[in-house]
Amino acid sequence: MIRHLWPLLIGFSVWALAFTALYAVQYLGCYLGWAPQAHRVTLVAGAAIAIAVSVGVLVLQIAHVRRLGPASTFMHRVGIGATVAAIAAAIITFAPVLLASACT
């Protein structure tokens, strides 16, 4: 069952995991006293990885739909839309890692 719903959920699941992880890294970096530059690089790398993974998921989903052709289902097609929306959400919500101060 969940297997069939994954196309719809995978994009935003990646976003949610990355959002939680970046928020946690932001606080942990401050708590552990990381150097500001190292902290920033970690956060930017985390955001970039999350976006890259999301794009990779989208590519796989599109390839899967093309491979299935007419046999692709509603869930596959809607899932592509959901992953595109999740990538847009990731770019917008993770953008502050480039500029905003992490600990003050």
Binding site: S13, W15, F19, L22, A95, P96
Partner: peptide, 27 residues
């Protein structure tokens, strides 16, 4: 589906004035 996920990522906007770092505010 997008609303469902995003709605769990904005709870801190009720806490913008409690003194949290700018990056968290940005998220």
């Amino acid at each position: 589906v997008a609303m469902a996920f995003l709605s769990f990522g904005l709870w801190v906007h009720h806490m913008f004035t409690v003194g949290i770092p700018h990056l968290a505010l940005g998220f």
